[in-house]
Amino acid sequence: MNWFDFLLRNRSEVLARSVEHLGLVAASMGIALLIGLPLGIALVRREQAQRWVLGAANIVQTIPSLALFGFLIPVPWIGGVGASTAIVALALYALLPILRNTCTGIAGVDPAVIEAARGMGMTERQLLWQVQLPLAAPVLLAGIRVATVISIGVATIAAAIGAGGLGVFIFRGVAMVNNQVILAGAIPAALLAVVVDLSLGAFQRSLAQR
């Protein structure tokens, strides 16, 4: 029996785990965006703070996920055992590319455009929403794309904290020394990453063409 037969015979669980997996990624990306975008915007003109925050996000990136789970278990509200801890950890990992691309994307907008917008009497809010964000959008989206693809890969580790997802097959397969089971998790996860990357890439191109 090869892994493909295994996949076919367990397709309902593979499907359910894939949905669970995407749910974890979507929830964590949502949180990372809700935090990362405003924070990145707030940091654009504060270079000192930006260095600190990006440095911190960089350090978070290097914490192994099992260690991060360990830290998070005792934290009230967001921690514990299950999906919430996994989502928090995934969101923390996604924060760096989102923050960095928000900062560089907005900082990369032509200063003459900003000067003209201010000089014409746009408020800071109008400047942000009508000029800076639309012009930074391709760079922003590139960051979101990278963060999402990374998240799909990293989300397999969510199974270590009882949050489900395709990682369940991987952990199960490792525990049972069964490569078919490992592949039943790893291959759909890789496919998901490729599909999401391609579709976000297409979206990014369509945005750039406009």
Binding site: D110, A112, V113, I114, E115, A116, A117, G119, Q130, V131, P134, L135, R210
Partner: peptide, 9 residues
């Protein structure tokens, strides 16, 4: 201004 600062989008 010299660089016009037209909004490219």
């Amino acid at each position: 201004i010299q660089d016009t600062g037209l909004f490219p989008h």
